[in-house]
């Protein structure tokens, strides 16, 4: 994840030009674009969170999505082989590579493909994911809808949604 120094540097770009930030976002998000295309791997969640973090740094417009938003998420696989916690506060996003205890919404997913289908599918797979028990959501369901928007909005900015 972006270090504090790197974030500060990155934040300069959109203050110069939103378009430049958008260009940089696209330039540095190739990995996520690949994951959303035909190069899906177990690292999907990592790429997604990295891409979001980058997006918040490089685009004021994208960052506006989390203005005044405080909330925490845990993403994990059932066997805990993949786990991450995401906290939104102060117009920023913090990621930890382990689950935290105090979460608003916890998403347990079968594998990377299931999580991608859940967040990005263009047709009816969200329900399929829930119905097929590929993904389980606990806590405040509204948080997953908000996260879904953040993910799709990033995808839109990257031209893949």
């Amino acid at each position: 994840m972006a270090s504090r120094i790197r974030r500060t540097l990155l934040n300069i770009i959109p203050s110069i030009s939103e378009r430049a930030g958008q260009w940089a976002l696209q330039r540095f998000s190739g990995g996520l674009v690949g994951q959303l295309g035909d190069r899906l791997t177990d690292k999907f969640l990592e790429f997604l969170l990295y891409g979001m973090d980058l997006g918040f740094c490089l685009s004021r417009d994208y960052r506006r999505n989390i203005k005044d938003f405080r909330g925490s998420y845990v993403f994990r696989t059932a066997n805990q082989s993949v786990a991450a916690s995401v906290t939104f506060a102060n117009e920023d996003m913090q990621v930890q590579t382990k689950p935290v205890e105090d979460w608003d919404c916890r998403i347990t997913f079968e594998n990377a493909a299931a999580l991608r289908r859940f967040l990005f599918s263009g047709n009816q797979d969200i329900l399929n994911s829930l119905l097929a028990n590929e993904v389980e959501v606990e806590g405040n369901l509204n948080y997953i809808y908000r996260f879904g928007f953040l993910a799709k909005d990033l995808g839109r900015r990257l031209g893949v949604v």
Binding site: L119, G122, N123, Q124, I126, N142, Y145, R146, G148, F149, A151, K152, D153, R156, V161
Partner: peptide, 16 residues
């Protein structure tokens, strides 16, 4: 209504 949040940008193009 919040269930529509994830698809605000895409609902005009969805299949169904």
């Amino acid at each position: 209504a919040l269930t529509l949040w994830p698809e605000l940008w895409t609902m005009s193009r969805r299949e169904s």
